[in-house]
Amino acid sequence: MQDLTAGLSTFSFDCGLTEDQEELLSLRARSAALSICGCAHAVFWCQLAHSLRGLINRHTTQRVALASERDSDLRVGILGLGHTGKQLLLCLLEKTDTKPSHIKISTRRPETAAEFAQSGVECYFDNGRLAAWADVLFLCCLPSHLPKVCASLHSHLPPRCLIYSFLSAVPVTRLARLLGHSFVLKPQYDFSACDRADMWPAHGQLITALNDPLLIEASCPLSVSGGISLGASWVYAVLYSLLNICTSASLGSRDALALINSLFLLKEPNTVEFNAQSYVNASYASALMPDEPFPWITLTDAQTKETPLSRFLSRSKSVQEAISAAYKALLEKKEMRDWGMDK
């Protein structure tokens, strides 16, 4: 029988990659890095929000006889169950305290979620219903579907619902306009070739990757390495979103700051704490009463403009280190009570 591959150098055992082919390897590393970092950072936000709501609930219970479980448990919606949506769902179930019963999915093919439904995750096709229910709604749809998705959400989004976008090609300002909603968070990643970029595709399963100390360190939001970088505006928006959670609960400014500081262990000796001027300008801060909630912060402004928080964080090394420590503790599954997070 004649060997059809005879004489074809690319099918030879010792054939290496051409220069053009080697350049494509960076795309593989980029895709893996974006998946790992995107899910890890979303998981971090969810655990912070979940823990803060628990702290608020316990704080409120001290003054009110009854506080409902509904008020404390974070309700997570995922819109779209393609590759990104499934990876995110697996990470949320594995790495956060969010219960399966507090995760709902809207997808055009609900039958693809049968394996998750058995664990208590509800799946249907109704974007408006999902938006009205969720505290955070992850957009995991294709960019080409965005106009229809935004139209289906428009009249259903309550102000307190955070939209967290995985759509890399759509700027946060455009997304906010399409949704008619200002509580939008979108990480901005940049990738450049480097000697350490080959660390990212080392794992076939994303969950396995998020258990690797090397990748946990490399994906740390304030010091992302391995050829990928995350805009600091994401960190600012995360911190402002936590403040908005306190405002939504009608928590006074003094109590809001105390709980956020405890979340990151900022009451330790020799650490700088968040204060009113960390979040708002000096004149507003000076007039803010301890029992008065902070104003609602527009996250699109927090991600596109200089703010008191961006100035505060850029010069507060101890706060940066505390945020990094909390991130690593979460992904390494250390005892979360040590970080002000309720298990």
Rank of each mutant, 00 (worst) to 15 (best):
F44D: 01
I103G: 01
P290S: 04
K95G: 03
L242R: 01
C194M: 07
L89R: 09
T84Y: 00
R254E: 06
F294Q: 01
P147M: 12
V170E: 01
K267P: 06
L242S: 03
I323W: 00
G85P: 01
G80A: 13
D20R: 15
T60S: 05
F44W: 08
R63M: 13
V136I: 12
H181C: 07
R174P: 04
D342A: 08
L27E: 10
Q188H: 14
F166I: 07
K104T: 13
S106G: 10
R174A: 07
K305N: 14
A114H: 10
I78W: 02
L313E: 00
A232E: 10
N244C: 03
V149R: 01
W200C: 02
H59A: 05
Y236H: 10
P143R: 11
F138H: 08
L48Q: 03
L265V: 12
L142S: 15
L215D: 00
D338E: 11
E321D: 15
K267R: 09
L137C: 06
S192F: 07
A249N: 06
I260T: 05
C246V: 07
W296L: 05
F294A: 04
A32D: 04
G120V: 14
G128A: 11
S229M: 08
I163N: 01
A29I: 10
D71P: 06
T271L: 13
S253F: 01
L93Q: 09
T247P: 00
S152E: 11
G54I: 05
F116D: 00
K186F: 07
Y124G: 09
V136L: 02
L178R: 09
S101N: 11
G226K: 02
M289G: 06
S223G: 14
D3H: 05
N127R: 05
G77Q: 02
E273Q: 15
I56H: 00
A6H: 01
E335D: 12
S155F: 05
A202L: 07
